[in-house]
């Protein structure tokens, strides 16, 4: 029961902190993230959504709806182009759920699923922006200059934040059982 658990505070707050940290880190570390010609895209929101799915236990967070909400904010506030992230975030939640069915919940499998999520997300993002003419980068440039650095950055995020986030979720879930 999501409504009664402490996750109903932890999860949305974490989601919105992740959303704004994506922007703030991109600004503060811009010379690192966007050093010519490489582009690293910070995906803390994606990390939070995916890890929340893995750590939620038997509490079902309405992840898809949160993904839609966060997608709307990304569309309006960060990009100013509607209709992309509102579809992509729920799609990634669905993809994670689908993939997770075929793998056991180990650290390596989770990082693998996150890897696939990132590749799909970035690829669709590139393709959509290519179609509507926001970017004209070639596929090769995209793979080398954007996808590879982005994967590197976000897998580092994953390794660094896996245990802190896990302990946050376990704590939130444990205290519920005591009450």
């Amino acid at each position: 029961m999501y409504r009664l658990s402490r996750l109903r505070f932890l999860f949305p707050i974490g989601l919105f902190v992740a959303l704004f940290l994506d922007g703030s880190l991109s600004k503060v570390w811009a010379s690192l993230f966007f050093s010519y010609p490489y582009n690293m895209v910070s995906h803390l929101v994606l990390l939070w959504l995916v890890l929340a799915y893995f750590f939620e236990g038997n509490i079902k967070i309405p992840l898809t709806w949160f993904a839609v909400a966060v997608g709307v904010i990304c569309d309006l506030y960060y990009s100013g182009v509607w209709g992309l992230f509102i579809v992509l975030y729920p799609l990634i939640v669905w993809l994670t759920k689908t993939l997770a069915r075929y793998f056991s919940d180990t650290f390596l499998n989770m990082i693998l699923i996150f890897f696939v999520d990132l590749v799909v997300f970035e690829l669709l993002n590139y393709w959509a922006y290519y179609v509507i003419g926001i970017t004209h980068a070639s596929l090769g440039d995209f793979l080398v200059d954007t996808l590879a650095p982005t994967l590197a950055l976000n897998l580092v995020y994953f390794v660094l934040l896996y245990w802190p986030i896990q302990s946050m979720f376990t704590k939130a879930l444990a205290e519920r059982q005591h009450n």
């Binding site: 704004f20 922007g23 600004k27 811009a30 966007f34 960060y78 990009s79 182009v81 993002n125 954007t146």
Partner: peptide, 15 residues
């Protein structure tokens, strides 16, 4: 003052 930057590789935007 600059508040934030779009976390995107395609749109170089600041707010």
């Amino acid at each position: 003052a600059v508040i934030t930057r779009s976390p995107s590789s395609w749109q170089k935007q600041i707010i």
